[in-house]
Amino acid sequence: MSLQMVFYLLVFPGLLFTAVLGLSIGWLDRKLSARFQYRVGPPFLQNFYDFIKLLGKETIVVRDSVHSLFIAAPFVAFAMLVCISTLIGVALFYKQGFLGDLFVLMYLLMIYSIALILGGSATGNVYSSLGAGREIKMLLADELAFILICLVAIVKAGYEIGLAEIAAVQQARGAFIASPSGIIAFLIGLICIQAKMALPPFNIAEAETEIVEGPLMEYSGPPLAFWYLNHFMMFTIYPFLLILLFWGGFSANGLGILWFSLKYLLIVVVMIILKNTNPRVRIDSALRFFWRIAFPISFIALVLAVLGV
């Protein structure tokens, strides 16, 4: 592990950058949601305050739970997300990667859910168990469409299975979003990441009024702080991935940076709008939506992509 890699991991596309950007975008989310609801919303540093406050709180561990799993779960998810953000960031900003890293990424992204589920069910709380069941069902629901849109990107890039290569193809030949298959896949991808981030209307696993925040119910103190951070870190990871796969990636000149930031903000704002204009759906409706509507549509995108449209 070279010094450069440590920098990648801990500072720029990795830990520090993702965390700070995530918490800031988390403020945007809260602020915009508040504005939607005719409220003022929290101050800019609110998420940082929340995080620091949670660090100082007491950690309560359920007596007859699996303690080590319960404590380790948020940190596993955290470390995984940092690795993922490093992978995506390095591909996005430094145009580096390894062969087939998109498949690796698809599987790594599941680890967040697994950690959440195992951490939640380790407590033995009924609500956490229910939430774990819902979380995995949500994973099943959105995974099918997510696989398809990843394949669309792969096919459109001429069967290149690398993030950096997919971005390079787009830099050379224009973003995929300009083609019919690309735009369909992008839109489905937008809904998929809404589900993967458990934002309303897909916050079924962490529904507060039904199952008391599900798997997170028993967490308190620093582990909760890290779940909190994880949630906001996904605000950087998923939009970045979407831009990388369909919207032409990143070019390192002045205009490119501005253009990239605009794209990123647009995606986040669309997600926040979706979040604030829909009630939470039921788990079977979510399954039905993804399997019977999103799947055929993304399949059409795949067919179009194979046909070269």
């Binding site: 809260r30 508040a34 003022v40 919303g41 929290p42 507060e208 009024t209 925040e213 119910m217 028993e218």
Partner: peptide, 16 residues
């Protein structure tokens, strides 16, 4: 009244 502007949030679980 919007207490969120003061950083106050209603939570569902006592652990939070």
């Amino acid at each position: 009244y919007d207490l969120e502007r003061l950083g106050i949030k209603l939570v569902g679980s006592i652990r939070h």
